[in-house]
């Protein structure tokens, strides 16, 4: 065996563990889910398992609860992703400007992200509790009346989004801060010499230069937001009146509480399609913007 071939083989051997896990834990389940989605596959009636073509997809299309879950998911995505972007960017810019104690602030901002979602939800349940919660205690101190954060339909989803922002914005801010710190200072110095104000410098120099990182954070957070499950499941259990039950939670209930794996797989594929469409559109839009 030549030296070059041996080098190649070594490379493949290093990649093999990941490639194997990729095949077994990603490709195989995707294929299984694809097969399940065209089957009537109910664990409580295994003798009735059969191929039913697109029936699961047409049933899901007509299922009002799928629509309701998709709408709840869309509300979460639309509220969460832009808010996360604005908040994280503001924190990153602030951190970048601070010279003294930057690491302390960075640590503080990053801290909530190291909690598990279970811990985060328990903490925020205490904040949101109608009778004994921290937020309502503060409101009452100023003479206000208690706000039903989690039991009022119009407030429940924004409350979940607020918790998610607290939990996740630190990590995104740290990523954006790293990209801000990569920008050579000479660009900003040149802009200052040319008389550009801070907004112009930010919009014409900073933003274009961090756009690739922004694209990455928007894409990953959009995909993550579409998969929202534990936040609502732990905080509101999908209520009030199922208004915060997202698509993944509904898929979980169908698959693991109703045992209808075929139907759940079909809805999973529908959600995957939605995520892919959003992802591709965002990717194209932001790349076009970057090129300009």
């Amino acid at each position: 065996m030549t030296w070059k071939k041996r080098q190649q083989l070594t490379g493949y051997l290093f990649l093999a563990p990941y490639a194997l896990s990729f095949l077994v834990f990603l490709v195989l389940p995707i294929l299984v889910a694809l097969v399940l989605s065209v089957m009537q596959f109910d664990l409580t009636a295994t003798e009735q398992i059969k191929f039913i073509g697109t029936q699961n997809f047409t049933d899901a299309w007509k299922d009002d609860y799928v629509k309701q879950a998709m709408i709840a998911t869309a509300r979460y995505v639309l509220l969460f992703v832009p808010s996360l972007l604005v908040l994280s960017l503001a924190m990153a810019v602030g951190l970048n400007a601070v010279k003294k104690g930057r690491n302390v602030f960075r640590g503080m901002i990053f801290l909530p992200g190291i909690f598990t979602i279970a811990v985060t939800a328990i903490l925020w349940q205490f904040f949101y509790n109608l009778e004994f919660g921290f937020f309502n205690w503060v409101i009452k101190q100023f003479g206000g009346t208690a706000v039903p954060w989690l039991s009022e339909k119009s407030l429940a989803m924004p409350s979940i989004v607020l918790m998610s922002l607290w939990w996740l914005s630190g990590g995104t801010a740290v990523i954006l801060l790293a990209s801000l710190q990569q920008i050579p200072t000479m660009y900003h110095e040149a802009a200052a010499l040319d008389g550009a104000g801070s907004w112009k410098t930010f919009s014409k120099i900073t933003m274009p230069l961090i756009k690739p990182v922004l694209l990455f954070t928007v894409l990953t957070n959009t995909i993550g937001a579409f998969q929202m499950f534990p936040q609502a499941s732990l905080l509101t259990q999908g209520g009030p009146e199922l208004s915060t039950r997202g698509t993944v939670q509904y898929i979980y209930e169908i698959a693991f509480q109703q045992y209808r794996l075929g139907y759940a797989a079909a809805i999973s594929w529908m959600l995957t399609a939605v995520i892919m469409v959003f992802g591709i559109v965002q990717f194209i839009a932001m790349r076009r913007n970057s090129a300009q």
């Binding site: 349940q125 109608l130 009778e131 004994f132 039903p148 509101t236």
Partner: peptide, 17 residues
């Protein structure tokens, strides 16, 4: 009864409220 909120009943009972 209190305004409907998640699991308030049993928690309130445990807290002697």
């Amino acid at each position: 009864i209190p305004p409907p909120d998640n699991q308030l009943g049993w928690v309130g009972y445990r807290q002697k409220k």
